[in-house]
């Protein structure tokens, strides 16, 4: 099967700032890809180049088999990071306008609008003016404007920014529904836990460069942790012998209990059984690799400790709205 998006060596500079640096990216048809990285990593710039809103200084872009998204705009749905509505327009005329710009017209258009508004839980708002909508409502209308023409490829730039938890959950299920319908989806976010919940595949960028491009299971096995979190049943128990066990490389005091690092060639299941036998456990669990840790691990060589902390804060903060990169 052809790839829906294919970038080869794409580079874009603004003045003396290299926003995107020889980026390769392939999204196969039907894929659900997360495009993640902190603010300013080059996500929006890349997406705009995919959409032919910006053009790369060098490199190649192919979208849905065409050399430019301009030739396939009717088949692409795009929810930009900087999005809004005409304040004085009513919802139905606005959606009609966007629908016509995407090449759908006729009686089917109105049916689709009503159908979609119902799906996102906003039946009957067609005749409201856009400036009367709440923030969550306008976000939904914007999402409808991106999917109204039932695109083959859906590109969502920071779709969750500024959403409350309920709307976020709703949007997540809408995205998954679209994916189930066969739509290829690429969405960007700077909030890694969100990506972890939805994506099949993750592409990480940092300072315009790609630092990781792998499926979630692939990442999990590649960055398989050898770290066990352990809380003894008796807080006063003597845990010194753990460090002496042959499976254990190191023991450190963590925030909640001990962080036990296993040796590379150890079977974690066996090691955990032996630890529990040595000291009765209130809680013992194998650490799952979080994308955030993976990301920090990948970029940490080039970052100081202070940078690492601020990066970590940024990647967790769902409320931070992304700056234009």
């Amino acid at each position: 099967m052809d790839s829906a998006i294919r970038l080869r060596g794409v580079t874009k500079t603004f003045g003396d700032m290299r926003a995107v640096d020889s980026l390769d990216l392939t999204v196969p048809t039907g894929g659900l890809y997360g495009f993640i990285g902190p603010n300013g990593a080059g996500k929006t710039t890349t997406i705009r180049m995919i959409m032919s809103i910006l053009f790369p200084d060098s490199g190649e872009v192919a979208v849905l088999g065409r050399a430019s998204a301009l030739q396939a705009k009717d088949r692409i749905g795009y929810l930009p990071e900087e999005r809004g509505l005409y304040r004085k327009m009513k919802v139905r005329p606005f959606l009609r306008y966007v629908g016509r710009l995407k090449g759908i017209d006729g009686p089917g258009l109105d049916r689709r609008i009503s159908g979609w508004l119902e799906r996102v839980g906003l039946p009957g708002i067609e005749s409201k003016r856009c400036d009367e909508l709440s923030k969550g409502m306008s976000q939904k209308v914007q999402f409808v404007s991106a999917v109204l023409h039932e695109p083959e490829l859906l590109i969502l730039d920071e779709p969750f920014s500024g959403l409350d938890p309920v709307s976020m959950r709703m949007l997540r299920s809408l995205i998954l529904e679209e994916h189930a319908r066969g739509t290829t989806i690429l969405f960007s976010t700077h909030v890694m836990p969100q990506a972890e919940e939805i994506c099949e595949h993750v592409v990480m960028v940092h300072k315009g460069r790609k630092v990781l491009d792998d499926s979630l299971p692939g990442i999990r096995s590649r960055f398989d942790p050898r770290s066990v979190q352990f809380e003894p049943l008796d807080p006063a128990a003597d845990t010194r012998m753990l460090a002496a066990m042959q499976e254990v490389e190191d023991v450190a005091q963590g925030e909640r209990g001990l962080e036990i690092l296993l040796r590379t060639d150890t079977d974690p299941a066996l090691a955990m059984r032996r630890i529990m036998a040595a000291v009765p456990a209130a809680r013992i669990e194998l650490s799952r690799p979080r994308l955030e840790d993976v990301f920090i691990g990948l970029v940490t060589d080039s970052a100081s400790a202070a940078d690492t902390d601020s990066l970590r804060a940024q990647l967790r903060d769902a409320a931070t709205t992304g700056a234009t990169a």
Binding site: I53, Y78, L79, E81, E82, R83, G84, L85, Q142, S145
Partner: peptide, 9 residues
């Protein structure tokens, strides 16, 4: 009103 990039899509 940030509607412009919606149009540019």
């Amino acid at each position: 009103s940030r509607v412009v990039e919606v149009l540019l899509s």
